[in-house]
Design a protein around this nucleic acid. Sequence first.
RNA 1: GCGCUUGUAGCUCAACAGGAUAGAGCGUUAGCCUCCGGAGCUAAAGGCUGUGGGUUCGACUCCCACCAAGCGCGCCA
Length: 539
Amino acid sequence: MNATEIKENLTKILTEAGIHFEQFSVFPAAKKEFGDFSTNLLFKLKESGHHTSIDDLISLIKKDKWFMENFEKIEEKNGFLNFFLKNTLIYGVINEILTRKQVFGKSDYGNNKKVLIEFVSANPTGPLTIAHGRQAAFGESLARILSFCGWRVTREYYLNDCGRQMELLGISLKCRYLQLRGICAEIPEDGYHGEYLRDIAKKLPDGCENRDASFFEEIAKQEILNMIQQDLDQFNVKFDRYFSEKELRSSGRVEKVIQKLRENSLVYEHQGALWFRSTLYGDDKDRVLIKSDGSYTYLAPDIAYHEDKITRAYDLLINLWGPDHAGYIPRIKAAVAAMGFSPEKLQVIIVQLTTLYRGKEKISMSTRKGQFITLKQLMDEVGPDATKFFFLFRRADSHLDFDMELAKKKTEENPVYYIQYAYVRAIHILAFGKDRGFDENEILHADFSLLKEPQEIEILKKIQSFPVMVEHAAKTLEVSKIAHYILDLAGVFHSYYQKFRVVDEDKKMSCARLGLVQCVYIVMQNGLDLLGISKPEKM
RNA sequence: GCGCUUGUAGCUCAACAGGAUAGAGCGUUAGCCUCCGGAGCUAAAGGCUGUGGGUUCGACUCCCACCAAGCGCGCCA
């Protein structure tokens, strides 16, 4: 039973009464006294000029078989229609969860459509930063959620493995190498000054002094890419593909795409450069594709990359970008539109920055001097799961304050431990029950209608709403909803545990309660999986 | 100067397409351990949702103006 079902049936009744009306919503009730679901139908009907009396409508509903079968009570209050589910229906969810287990909540909402999520895409010029980490956590979780909801998901990393930054990287590594051998060499000011290049230089054999910068560039790229992949691995973030800009360029795709734009009169020459008429598609100004020195801007291969994505026939493209790229959205949307792809099918999610704190103290980061806390350092200190959780608890478009002291605390202040404790607690109760001779079959066939305590009903309603919540997270592309849900569930469960004993002398009641605990266990498991957070067996 | 994002309890955050008395956790205060793990629970205090207008049955949510913070505004990537 969910809101959509109720809406469908209401619409049906209205249609039968000769009223074609769908501009209303059905939503979970705000409070217990309002029942389980509410609708604003009465307001909306009035608003749009339908003169149906409340009494008429209610009597229509009360004549309907479906509503009579499913609801205890349907009443009007403050202009809302409130629906009270029959309790027997609430218990049905237990059997559903116990049989569906890890696929409980799974849906075909995505209709098997293809979606590509491009994220992290950090230049292979240094270790991943915490900004990349937040993107990685978000992208991984979003991929899991969409896939759970019936999308076919590809995770892709766009690798900027050529261009000026890579050249500088090569030069910087060569300097480090020469320095190690006592040769005076100074890294350019806009080069890379981080310690990691010194470490890479140490691994190189003697006799490379006269190799050119491109030799060092290749070494640096490979080493750093390895480092990045190790970090992602430790963070439990997987990519299906690393899309190399270098290969894209050498394949001639960039030229082709520019040719295509040229054929459609979407480019023009001005002051020796080639411009893309992005203003035709809503951008503030036209953008340069080929500079007057003949080289490409960043945009040119990026358009080719997006054209490649489009030809791979995705129904939806999702890009996760940092806030510094927000201004870039109109031009890439323009490019996508110019390729004949509907720009709404490209969704760019801006993942805001994270500020690190130790308690009250803000940790200052300076990328220029190579002094910043890397994702790896953060993971090593706080742990990958806690790190992920803190990243995912906040909405992507909000700035995040990350308190490392708090994240490390193994106390009630830390939501990660609060959740993990609830999970482990469920495991313990189930193990205890098994120990006392309750087996799975017995639990599955327990009389769940014994669960009448308000706290039990509350847990039931909470776990029942899991599928709707997941679908909503998928629709809005908001991962944080899952994190909040799990925290809520942990809360009602802790509270229940404190007040009631699950396993005791009353066999029937123990069975029913063990079933409930197992449901909580399964739902938490599914939720944690969607976040990409590992599940502890003990703490 | 222009554009984008954000502004909700002391702190960190929720509030589903505009719904009913704006909710959680932490912190504070007062309580709870012979018992399935107290890394937990119960309760109290805490709010003019940045400010001022507007739209309507109803606004944290939509519109306008202003204030504050962050980020953008290259033939950089």
